[in-house]
Computed example of a mutant assay.
Amino acid sequence: MKIIEHATAASLWAVAEPLLATDPANNTHQLSALSRILQLGARHGERFFAVELDGMLVGCATLVDTQTLFLSVMPDEAATALATWLRTQQIALAGVIGRRDLLKSFTDIFDREYSVHADLLLYQLHGSPAFGSASGASRIATSNDIDLLIDWLSAFEAEVGMIAVPTPLAERVRRRIADEQIVLWCDRGEPVAFAGGNPLPAASARIGPVYTPPPLRARGFAQAVTAAASVHVQRDRPRTVFLFTDALNPASNRCYQRIGYRHIADHAHLLFDRRAT
């Protein structure tokens, strides 16, 4: 196995796109990270790695702005080779995200104490999404919704314990509004829930985050807005649509199953003990 560090996201993308497209579901974190960096540039020390066997690409990984490594699908021996190389090069990682089986191969060799930040269930939409019976209708968020969405996204990130990112929250919200990536569900004209929707390469898309303020929950708004976002991300072309759920949140899992999402794989986000040497 040979590990090659690429200087830019564009350089890695040029060789990795066909590989990532073979399994857009399990490579969705890589597709999302690389497409975002290709659009915005690498502003926070992002790094890009390829794993080759006999001159053929068999896996890749992106170290994003939180010092979290996103692993593509790859053979177990590629994951162990990458872990060995990163450890030898003394490249610091705050965490790693990927398919559960690959994470075991990686962490066995990377040899750092870690905790599970999130057990993630990967779901894929089958058929047309079911909106349920919630009252109201959807609309695309506009610049008039910025303050509301900053408040809601801040509350969402606090609730799920999201790892802090360098890009300010307001900048992230404005960008997603400009790209028409946020759908609101409104009841009696007032926003009651939102869902993000991110079109990705390989004719795929990912939904998230989804948030309903606590006083408005259990009324079907999360199902309705997720269904609306699932339709919206396919406005330009048919796409295979995915989302991640917290394995420990039965309510959200039931909600997405009612829409038409089906569990297809197990992923996880692991955090390394930064005090380890």
Rank of each mutant, 00 (worst) to 15 (best):
K2C: 05
K2L: 13
I3T: 11
I3Q: 05
E5K: 10
A9Y: 11
W13I: 02
V15H: 07
V15N: 05
P18S: 06
A21G: 14
A21P: 06
T22G: 05
T22L: 05
N26C: 11
N26V: 06
S32F: 09
I37Y: 02
L38P: 08
L38Q: 15
Q39I: 05
A50E: 15
L53Y: 14
D54Y: 07
L57P: 10
G59K: 03
A61G: 08
T66G: 13
Q67D: 15
T68H: 05
L69C: 03
L69V: 00
F70D: 08
L71A: 11
V73T: 15
M74Q: 07
E77T: 14
E77K: 14
A78H: 01
A78C: 02
A78G: 02
T84H: 14
T84W: 09
I91Y: 01
L93I: 06
A94H: 15
A94K: 14
L102N: 07
S105H: 15
F106T: 02
R112E: 04
R112V: 05
E113I: 00
S115V: 12
L121Q: 12
H126D: 12
P129V: 10
A130P: 00
G132F: 09
S133I: 12
S135D: 13
I140N: 03
I140V: 14
A141R: 01
T142G: 14
S143M: 09
N144H: 10
I146C: 13
I146W: 04
I146V: 15
I146F: 09
I146T: 15
D147H: 07
L149S: 02
I150G: 11
D151L: 13
S154I: 08
A155M: 07
A158W: 03
E159L: 13
E159I: 10
V160S: 03
A164P: 03
A170S: 15
E171Q: 11
E171M: 09
R172W: 00
R174D: 07
R174I: 11
R175W: 05
R175N: 04
R176L: 06
R176G: 03
I177M: 05
D179F: 10
Q181H: 13
V183L: 11
W185T: 01
P191E: 06
F194W: 04
G196E: 07
P201L: 07
A202C: 14
A203W: 09
R206F: 05
G208L: 03
V210C: 03
P214E: 15
L216E: 11
F221N: 00
A222G: 14
A224Y: 04
A224S: 11
V225L: 10
H232S: 02
V233Y: 06
Q234E: 01
R235P: 12
D236N: 12
R239K: 10
R239E: 04
F242M: 00
F244I: 08
T245H: 02
T245L: 04
D246E: 02
D246K: 00
S252G: 12
S252D: 09
N253A: 09
Y256E: 03
I259K: 00
G260N: 00
Y261I: 02
H263N: 11
H263T: 06
I264F: 08
I264G: 06
A265W: 02
A268H: 01
D273T: 12
R274Y: 09
A276Q: 04
T277I: 10
T277D: 15
